[in-house]
Computed example of a mutant assay.
Amino acid sequence: MAQLMDKAKNFVSEKLSDVAKPEAHVSDVDFKRVSKDHIEYLAKVSVNNPYSASIPICEIKYSFKSASREVASGRIPDPGSLKGKGTTMLDVPVKVPYNVLMSLAKDIGADWDIDYTLDIGLVIDLPAIGNFTIPLSHTGEVKLPSISNMFSHQ
C-alpha cells in the first residue's frame, strides 16, 4: 500500500512540475522618500502570468538584508491580481528605519551606499494547486539619500 501511495505522489509531482506557472523578477530597487522615522525604497517586481485568467495575489512578503542581517521586513496583504496572459508590475515599498541605517555605517563608508539582498515571496492562488509562493531574491546596492533628497521627497 505504501508503494502505491509513493507512486501516486510521484505521478502528481511530475504532472505539477510540467504545469506552467507565473514567473517573476525584481526589475529595480530605488530610493522613494524620506519620512520622520525611516527611508523608503521601492522595489519594482515584474510578474508574467501564462494563463488567460487573472490570478489573485494573496500577499507579498519581503525581507531586506544588509551586512548579513535583516534590517527590514513586512508583508502586503491582498495586493490585487495578476492580469491574464500578460505582465503585471507590482510595487513593493521597503521601509528601513533610521536607527538601523546608522548601525550599518561601517558598510556605508565613503561611497554612501548600502549593499543589500532583498528576498520577496509572492503568494498567489493557482487554480487546482492552491497557494503557491514564487520566491525572488535580488542583490544590489542602493544609495542613501543626500540632504537635497531628504527635503525634496517629503
Rank of each mutant, 00 (worst) to 15 (best):
K44C: 08
L122Y: 01
N48H: 11
L4F: 11
K85P: 08
L101T: 05
V142N: 05
A2G: 14
C58G: 13
V142F: 02
H138G: 01
M1G: 09
V12S: 07
A72E: 02
G74K: 06
Y62R: 01
A20N: 12
V26C: 08
L16N: 13
G121F: 03
D30F: 08
K95N: 03
N48A: 12
G86C: 06
K7T: 08
S17F: 14
T87V: 14
H38C: 12
S68W: 09
D37I: 09
C58P: 08
D91V: 00
K21D: 01
W112T: 13
I57Y: 00
I57C: 04
K61V: 00
S103W: 06
C58F: 11
A8C: 01
Y41S: 01
V19L: 07
E70Y: 00
K143S: 15
N10F: 07
D78K: 06
R69L: 08
V123P: 06
Y51S: 11
L122K: 08
D115S: 07
S17Q: 15
G130S: 07
K36E: 12
G74P: 02
P56V: 09
I60F: 01
L82A: 03
Y41Q: 05
K32Q: 09
F64E: 00
M150T: 09
N149I: 07
L4Q: 14
A43Y: 06
K21A: 05
L16C: 08
Q154P: 06
K143N: 15
